[in-house]
Computed example of a mutant assay.
Amino acid sequence: MRFIVNDTPLDLDPAHLIIAGWTGRDAAAIQHHIDELAELGVKPPSTTPLFYRVSAGLLTTGDSIQVVGNASSGEVEPMILQSGGQRWLGLGSDHTDRALEAHSVAMSKQVCAKPCAARLWPWEDVADRLEDIRLESWIEEDGEWVVYQQGTLASIRPLGELIDGGSLDALSRDGAVAMMCGTFGAIGGVRPATRFRMTMTDPARDRSISHEYSMVQLPEIA
């Protein structure tokens, strides 16, 4: 895969992909997300946080993904990419099949591609102000973009804690590893859409990373 760091190409093919779930720092916020997913029939987690392992080949910087049926949706998340002793902060979407999620959260994450922005920030450029980084997402409804999620990394467990929990240092010894680090509750509730837009903003430097993708729905054949 080709990423961009400070306008310089970086070619990396992650060998591992981790989806960190239930990473909210506020217990009430975690419960809110559990409750909104419970409305879709999703069982509560056995513990929090959880670190789901999915196929590394699901990660894509493309602007279109294919999904089966019309029950999937995106989630804006900070993404950590690590290779050897180098680490970067990026932007991704844990796109998930909500119908399958009611049966198995792990499987629902495995069946969907994981879109991410190509642009990355060097870890050392943002490590001292991670909690100020802001994430937002929008979905297209009735031809208009609607705010879907928004918040700062202060709402998510410290990324250093998630790095340890996901064993990124150990995994990166035998290949690059990417980890999506959790998300915020959906404004108006979790729901599918055919287009998803997301942005990560660093207010201290007045810069942002954005990515947008569409979903091509494949027929669900019984």
Results as ranks from 00 to 15, higher is better:
Glu212Ile: 08
Gly165Val: 14
Val42Leu: 11
Ala15Phe: 00
Gln66Phe: 09
Trp88Ala: 03
Phe196Ile: 14
Asp142Tyr: 06
Glu124His: 14
Gly69Cys: 05
Glu140Trp: 07
Leu10Gln: 04
Leu10Met: 02
Pro192Ser: 11
Thr194Leu: 15
Gly189Met: 08
Gly165Ala: 09
Leu162Glu: 01
Pro44Asn: 04
Asp11Leu: 11
Gly165Phe: 04
Gly21Arg: 04
Gly92Glu: 03
Ser104Thr: 12
Glu220Phe: 05
Ala38Asp: 02
Leu171Trp: 02
Leu135Met: 06
Ala176Tyr: 02
Gly165Leu: 11
Ala71Ser: 15
Ser46Tyr: 02
Ile209Leu: 09
Gln150Arg: 14
Leu153Ser: 04
Gln66Ser: 15
Ser93His: 03
Arg2His: 03
Phe51Leu: 06
Pro219Met: 12
Ala178Gln: 08
Thr199Asn: 13
Ala178Gly: 06
Val42Arg: 07
Met198Phe: 08
Glu101Ala: 14
Gly185His: 09
Thr194Gly: 13
Ser73Arg: 06
Glu36Cys: 12
Asp174Cys: 13
Leu89Trp: 01
Pro192Ile: 10
Glu212Cys: 13
Thr48Tyr: 10
Tyr213Cys: 03
Ile163Lys: 05
Val177Asp: 01
Val42Thr: 13
Thr8Ala: 14
Ala170Pro: 05
Gln150Tyr: 06
Ala127Tyr: 01
Val68Cys: 11
Asp13Asn: 15
Pro44Gly: 06
Leu89Asn: 07
Asp63Cys: 11
Ile18Asp: 01
Ala106Trp: 03
Asp7Ala: 14
Gly62Asn: 04
Ala176Val: 00
Trp22Ile: 07
Pro219Gln: 10
Phe184Cys: 13
Asp125Ser: 15
